[in-house]
């Protein structure tokens, strides 16, 4: 996810600003979409927590009903494409993560290895094999780097793992316990901040143990990843990201094609603009502003999307049947 604040990616506008031109609109084709689509697509709420929280209004079966979705703001965001695993220079058996992230409030970073999360403990992460390094504090800033520039390189390995201590199978995937619903994640990286409205209440993240369950005054993002072996070295692969906002957990989902959608359509020879993905793939004239659900391909303008609904009703990119449309108004 990019850092530009002009795009509603992971950091979207709060719902409570009716004049805000940015917004998500679900255009519902007469069926009852899962709760996730009412709440802003990018965030899939976790099972037990979500449904009661959303206003479930009875919906008439008329097609093309439009309703404003809830959008939520996420103050901390690890850019998952920047996450890498680096071999420690002083001790080559250790690999530590590096990444960049944005934080809209002062935040702390904690790195966990072999952490277990159960679905009922507000994202609490339990570690038994390796204790997490201490929290690293950051000031409010876009484009923060981990490890921080002022950290002594000799400290990096506190945030690292020695892959040789584990079986490959432990490192290469999340281990699920079907009975308890628990997952053990090879790597978790948690960014946490105190929500702005609560900052005066004297809440301190530092008073809480690393990996503790989320509180209503915390806003966080957790990146879950595994290791991948390449001959003699290791890399990291992101499996998912979750945020905690207003006392609820949401899984982040990417919208395919959002990156290019806001920029002007290139014209003229030498500009293969049809490949750059800015204009609607059907009319090739209007900008893309509508994402198809559930496949999350943002490839159409809202008019062509409506027309597609009435006709094939399949995604032009992947042919998945369309269940609903999400119109995204980009702030310019």
């Amino acid at each position: 996810m990019g850092s530009s604040s002009s795009r509603p990616q992971t950091r979207t506008r709060p719902v409570t600003r009716p004049n805000d031109p940015s917004g998500f609109t679900v255009v519902n084709g007469g069926h009852q979409p899962p709760a996730v689509y009412n709440s802003g697509v990018q965030y899939a709420p976790q099972q037990q927590q979500a449904p009661a929280q959303y206003p479930q209004q009875p919906r008439p079966p008329a097609p093309a009903e439009k309703k404003k979705t809830k959008t939520i703001r996420n103050d901390v965001n690890l850019k998952k494409h920047t996450l890498k695993l680096v071999q420690d220079e002083s001790d080559p058996s250790v690999y530590y993560p590096t990444f960049t992230f944005d934080c809209g409030s002062p935040c702390s970073v904690t790195v966990f290895f072999m952490a277990t999360e159960s679905p009922s403990e507000k994202l609490r992460l339990r570690t038994s094999l390796q204790s997490p390094g201490r929290r690293v504090q950051y000031d409010k800033k876009l484009g923060c780097v981990f490890p921080p520039e002022d950290m002594d390189p000799s400290e990096y390995k506190q945030y690292g793992i020695v892959p040789a201590l584990y079986a490959d199978s432990q490192l290469s995937s999340a281990e699920a316990n079907e009975d308890s619903g628990e997952h053990r994640w090879p790597i978790c990286i948690r960014l946490e901040c105190v929500v702005a409205e609560e900052a005066l209440e004297d809440h301190k993240l530092g008073d809480l143990p690393a990996g503790c369950g989320m509180r209503d005054w915390i806003q966080s993002q957790t990146t879950y990843a595994c290791l991948e072996r390449h001959e003699t070295t290791w890399s990291v692969k992101v499996l998912k990201q979750k945020i905690w906002v207003q006392n609820l957990a949401y899984e982040l989902q990417e919208i395919y094609g959002l990156e290019n959608a806001g920029t002007p359509v290139a014209e003229g020879p030498g500009q293969p603009s049809d490949d750059l993905g800015r204009e609607c793939v059907i009319c090739m004239s209007e900008p893309r502003d509508t994402t198809l659900l559930p496949c999350r391909h943002m490839c159409l303008c809202h008019e062509c999307a409506q027309m597609l609904r009435q006709q094939t009703n399949k995604c032009p990119i992947c042919r998945t049947p369309v269940r609903s449309l999400l119109e995204i108004t980009l702030k310019t």
Binding site: P269, P272, C283, M284, S285
Partner: peptide
């Protein structure tokens, strides 16, 4: 003629 057809035609001629 829909805009799309005009655009496709232009691009086919400009960049075959």
């Amino acid at each position: 003629l829909p805009k799309r057809i005009i655009k496709e035609t232009q691009r086919l001629l400009a960049e075959p």
